[in-house]
Amino acid sequence: MAMTINRRLMLGTLAGVSALAMGLGAANAQDKLRIAAIVQSLDTEFNVLWANAAEAHPLVADGTIELTVLDGRMDPFNQSNQFDTAINEGYDAIIFIPVDINAGNDPVARAMEAGVPVIGSNTLISDTDLYHAFISSDDVLAGEMLARSVIEKINGEGNVVIVEGMIGQSAQVQRLEGIQKVLAEYPNINVLETRTANWSRAEALTLVENWLISNGGDIQGVIAENDEMAIGSLEAVKAYGLDPATVPVAGVDGITDALLAVQRGEMMSTLQDANALAQGAIDLAAAAVQGDAYTPVAAVWDVNGGALVWGGGTEKQYSVPWVPVTADNVEELLALRDGA
């Protein structure tokens, strides 16, 4: 209850401040391209990395594009209100990282109807046809990579546990789908427990501690749907006296702590490329407004030497590849992080 009240309070303050900021912006920047980015929550490291990458987009940095990042505070209702604000304030385009896979559909439909193109980024809504375009990494594939990394390390045999994300979010739904796909291939893998730790490190720590006790330490691998929970699980495994080299723990996202743990040889992770997702989405939003006249500048596109085919920016779906974090590339990835 207190949390809801807290959110409302924050929302009120935020709405006031952003309305003021928008008012000032509107007064002097009618000709600028104005983009609103509605993100999940700036309490989470991935969203912060995403927002920092978006602000670092060359055209945002030089002021050609005016970007406003609105913090969804992990609340679908809050995000819905922010859509209304962005539509009313006459933004040219909206970039959206939805909190909830289903609750995100309706606001996107409202914006598209009002003539404001919506570009999806990172997590998805269930009805992706509503989007003007979306750029994401395939979370089903991430789930597969995640499960495979743990299962192959224990030679396809043994007891594993699955620590799930917040139930109902696209990353949880799709990563689980990927995990289950791989599990179907390995009949000798026994899933002892499956429970949510709500993406939280502290919750995962307690949960895996208790699981280790209830199963007498007979757990051979931990599949966590994100890195925060993988780190919590790793601490539980170590505290129980097990060696992370023989009990593999894996996560997804590539947060800094996970990169450090990979460097120490204690866990496995797959990096979600926040730069590509954020800057690619800004290019797509600008192209949606300006059409052929717009030239993309993000490094992820093939026209700029990257891996993703730009194709005039008219495709519906763009899929940013995952980057497995290994002992070989972790130094390089950490160096990039320090610069961010």
Binding site: A2, M10, T13, L42, T44, E45, V48, I255, D257
Partner: peptide, 23 residues
């Protein structure tokens, strides 16, 4: 204290830039 709940959380996010302090 309800007011402080909100202010202290905001201040926390501000000083940490919303990111964990690792290492």
């Amino acid at each position: 204290t309800l007011g402080m709940l909100s202010m202290a959380r905001g201040a926390t996010l501000l000083i940490s830039d919303g990111r964990p302090v690792p290492n």
